[in-house]
């Protein structure tokens, strides 16, 4: 078994076993998210250097890498929270964020951006709940204002979502009355309520106390099992090892390695990846328990 070496992110495609084997549903084998040579610079600093990536329906992709490797920027670009400035990001075939005009590429109108990312759900490291609304209020807000559901319908759907993350009994609590883990689960429910086709998680457990990490990962595992397409930026190697269909290792804005968890965690060939994993091994040996 050898892991895939991707110099400069130029080797096309993914190995079949990295996506096929662990597929949960195989009714629809379509590509949800396509990245084509995506690049991004902050001033002179090029933080993303031509990223190619495809995410199939029901696939779980974990992005790992040292801080500053560009993984969060990459994920935020997928929701156009960062304006990537090279290449293309397509969500279910539609170009995200830009439109081509005679004078070159222009930022698309906000309505069009929203239309394309309507099927994207985003979960943030800092939860980003609205503190002046209850848990239910947070979940229902977009249902009311964007989906234009009636108060009753929104509430029904909102309660169902809270129930799904195990927090129906906290519907009337304000974010500040909830633990970090509960807040993050509300944030997941809020994103799920809009019925996204793909969920993006930006280090969803990094702001949590260690004993609260589990409950959030549990919800994410359930989602994965139900066939949700997910892209997860994470430092939880155990989660990546157990849940991911493919793991992508980013360093300095490039995809250095990609493959199955087995390939990445147990057969790492790239020195940079080995060094990165060694840090985890040195700190705690938990990732060895992860079954391939």
């Amino acid at each position: 078994m050898n892991s895939l070496l991707i110099p400069g992110g130029n080797v096309p495609g993914q190995s079949p076993e990295s996506i096929g084997e662990r597929m949960k549903t195989n009714d629809e084998q379509s590509t949800v998210l396509t990245l084509n040579k995506v690049g991004k610079s902050f001033g002179h600093l090029r933080v993303l250097k031509g990223i190619d990536l495809q995410v199939q329906r029901s696939e779980v992709v974990c992005l790992i890498g040292p801080s500053g490797s560009g993984k969060s920027t990459l994920l935020r670009s997928m929701a156009f929270l960062e304006e990537y400035d090279e290449g293309e990001i397509r969500i279910e075939g539609q170009l995200l964020g830009w439109q081509d005009t005679d004078k070159g590429r222009r930022r698309a109108p906000q309505a069009q951006i929203n239309q394309v990312r309507r099927n994207v759900g985003m979960v943030f490291q800092q939860f980003n709940l609205w503190p002046h609304m209850t848990a239910l209020g947070n979940v229902c807000e977009a249902l009311r204002r964007v989906r234009k559901l009636s108060a009753d319908d929104a509430k029904k759907r909102g309660m169902a979502m809270l129930d799904k993350v195990g927090l129906a009994h906290k519907a009337d609590a304000y974010p500040a009355q909830l633990s970090g883990g509960q807040q993050q689960r509300v944030a997941i429910a809020r994103a799920l309520a809009m019925e996204p086709h793909i969920m993006l998680f930006d280090e969803p457990t990094s702001a949590l106390d260690p004993e609260l990490v589990g409950e959030v990962l549990q919800v994410m595992k359930t989602l994965a099992k139900e066939g949700m397409t997910m892209v997860v930026v994470t430092h939880e190697m155990g989660f990546a090892a157990q849940v991911a269909d493919s793991v992508i290792f980013l360093d300095q804005g490039e995809i250095v390695a990609r493959g199955t968890p087995q390939q990445i965690f147990h057969n790492a060939e790239q020195p940079r990846l080995q060094q990165f994993l060694q840090n985890y091994l040195d700190r705690n040996a938990f990732w060895q328990d992860a079954r391939p």
């Binding site: 929701a79 980003n128 609205w130 964007v146």
Partner: peptide
């Protein structure tokens, strides 16, 4: 971040 969350939901 609260506005980013709203943006992502189409608000």
């Amino acid at each position: 971040g609260q506005l980013e969350a709203a943006d992502c939901l189409g608000i």
